[in-house]
Amino acid sequence: MELSFEKVSGTGKKAFLQNISFTVKEGYITGLIGANGAGKTTLFHTVMDENAKYEGVIRIDGQDIKECRETIMNRIGFISEEQQFFMDKTAGENVKLYAGVYDVFKEEVFSEFMHRMGLSPGKTVGKMSRGEYLKFQVAFAMAHDSKLFLLDEVTAGMDPVFKKEFFKILHEIVQDETVAVLMSTHIKEEVDMHMDYVARLECGHLVSFKEASEEAE
């Protein structure tokens, strides 16, 4: 599932993004880097929000997301601290609530990933640590067969052990060459070690899009 931005600019009073154009290719991990306030989260919200106001076109596999949002949202795994799960409910209860909303939801895949990451479906989401909450979201995204993963600053504050496991899972995910990953990060080491491409934002503008090896130089 390929994500492409074609001259995307925010509109309205809170317009910030300006003329963003780049493609998140399937089979690769694309990093989105920039200082706080550069527009990384805004870019994710522009993809995810039903009523996002922008000019230009955001395409997924060539289709304008405004024309087929409901179909496309089935295959997007958005992993962020801002995700809207029911925090007073357990992981399992959240799955029961949301499973019917997706065309495909494989509870056995969810259970497998939760088990692999050492997390119990009986744990209340609001009582999970940051790392556990992100693990839960990854399991959830895998269960509804996501082909595009959008990860918003997920590794900030992650312990090194989990971070290693997390990137191992991420690399396994993109081995399926139909899966694309766009991940925002501040951490240069992550860009150098794990990203294939890097999009750099500054004040809402895309200042560069290049292979990670070139960015490292």
Partner: peptide, 15 residues
């Protein structure tokens, strides 16, 4: 108190 629209805003169901 959270609106149900917020809980479903990033899912395949539209408002």
């Amino acid at each position: 108190q959270v609106s149900i629209y917020q809980k479903l805003k990033w899912t395949p169901v539209s408002r």
